[in-house]
């Protein structure tokens, strides 16, 4: 079994949105929507400020509440890597998955179904990185398999301090941020 995920180095990320734009072009994301985005968190008062810049997206949680909430099985774990996907022609657009996601990673596509990051599974299946990872000019993102002990993502987690987003939501997110 594989468990796909990302390790993102916040020390390198400059928040340029290249990942966002690459995703939109690669996946023909409709205008006005995005599947990934930049969050900037600044703490402190001028001039003593700690700032973290992150590229965020669906965390492809191992215990994904969106999959649990889906009444039709449209939201599901993909056979490969546990990637969380939405089957467009099973989705009724009830939006329970959107309400259940603590990361607000999903949205309603103008065609009616719910859309989100797919980890560019169409690229991953061809051995490529997701579009966001492959475009990043700071090389801050690493995509890989957490179930493979020798994978680059595991090496990074073993060598650096990291955190994930809202671990307290109990969804077991698969994106980690190096700090």
């Amino acid at each position: 079994m594989a468990r796909y995920g990302m390790v993102i180095d916040t020390l390198k990320c400059v928040g340029c949105q290249d990942c966002v734009i690459a995703c939109e072009a690669e996946n023909s994301v409709p205008e006005g929507f995005c599947r990934d985005w930049i969050t900037t968190e600044a703490k402190g008062t001028f001039p003593t400020i700690q700032m973290e810049i992150r590229t965020e997206r669906c965390n492809h949680c191992t215990d994904a509440p969106c999959v649990s909430a889906c009444p039709t099985g449209a939201s599901h774990y993909h056979d490969i890597g546990g990637v969380v996907l939405v089957n467009h022609d099973e989705c009724i657009g009830c939006k329970a998955c959107i309400a259940s996601c603590p990361y607000d990673a999903r949205f309603v596509h103008p065609e009616g179904y719910v859309d989100k990051c797919t980890f560019c599974i169409h690229r991953v299946e061809k051995g490529q990185d997701p579009a966001c990872v492959s475009v990043c000019p700071t090389y801050c993102m690493t995509f890989g398999d957490f179930d493979d002990p020798g994978s680059e993502v595991n090496k990074l987690l073993n060598s650096r301090r990291y955190h994930s987003l809202l671990p307290e939501a109990g969804t077991k997110p698969n994106i980690y941020y190096l700090t």
């Binding site: 290249d18 734009i21 072009a25 000019p137």
Partner: peptide
């Protein structure tokens, strides 16, 4: 790797 503007060049 292009920058965001280059990636958005289309």
């Amino acid at each position: 790797r292009l920058c965001p503007r280059g990636t958005g060049g289309i």
